[in-house]
Simulated assay, not measured.
Amino acid sequence: MPRDATTTTPGRILAPLQRFARCRRATTALEFALVGPILILLVLMIIENGLMLFAQAVLDNATVVATRQLQINTINTSADFRTAVCSNMSNFFNCANLQFYVNSSPTGFPSVVMPSTSGAFAATVFTPGNPGDYVLAEVAYNRAYVAPWLIKLAGPDWILLATQAFQNEPSL
């Protein structure tokens, strides 16, 4: 029986699909196209998290140094406290994004005050207290992401918070 153009066999239809299934030339490129963006996103998020942890460590250290100066009564104004914190932070920080709350009590530690989602405290308080007073110092830093596309994933900014509680040194 002669074949005409309208007659097809299952083998003629499946042959190109079988050849395509056996071809392995672009397998690596296809796998990278599927897995690569996820891997790159993961690496960038790890870098961003590392930068955040570095910023938190620098903020903690700057707060410790500045509150030690409060404790021994060498800082008396909020401007001096801001200068002390900023001078101990690297150029990685913008001091305009720095907020702080320093409160004291002669009978016990004041309550912790959490900053808002923008990194600002509800009230600006700077009361370093007298010798022997209990002092709570909180420093908040509103840090923007290095990778701006993370804003859609995690929110607008990271709020870093360093807290120190201590008792002022007695006067000599």
Rank of each mutant, 00 (worst) to 15 (best):
G132E: 02
S118N: 13
A120F: 03
N103Y: 14
G119V: 08
R68L: 06
N88R: 03
G132A: 01
G108N: 05
V85N: 03
A96I: 10
Y134A: 00
N103H: 14
L98P: 09
Q71C: 03
N94M: 02
S111Y: 05
G132L: 02
N103P: 14
V85S: 03
A96W: 05
T107V: 13
P115M: 05
Y101L: 07
V113F: 08
T107D: 13
T127Q: 15
F100C: 05
P110F: 00
R82Y: 06
S104N: 11
F81P: 07
R82V: 08
T127G: 11
P115W: 01
Q69V: 06
T83R: 10
P106S: 09
Q99G: 14
F92R: 12
N88E: 06
F109L: 13
T124V: 09
P131K: 02
S78H: 10
P110C: 01
G108T: 07
F121S: 06
F109K: 03
S90F: 00
P131F: 04
F92C: 05
N94T: 06
T77C: 02
F100R: 09
N94W: 03
P131S: 09
P106G: 04
N88M: 01
T83H: 10
S87P: 12
A123L: 09
S111K: 13
A123S: 12
F92A: 10
G132Y: 03
P110W: 02
F100K: 05
L98M: 05
G119I: 00
D80P: 14
S105Y: 03
C95A: 04
V125H: 06
P115C: 06
T77F: 00
A123T: 14
V112S: 15
F92G: 11
T117P: 15
P131D: 03
T74I: 07
A122R: 14
M89C: 05
A84R: 04
S90V: 06
F81L: 01
T127V: 12
N91I: 08
T127M: 14
T107Q: 12
D80Y: 10
N97S: 13
D80I: 03
S87A: 09
A79H: 03
F93E: 00
M114Y: 14
G129F: 01
N73C: 10
T77Q: 07
S87T: 14
Y134F: 08
N91V: 09
V102L: 08
V102T: 08
F81T: 02
S111W: 08
S118E: 15
N88G: 01
P106C: 05
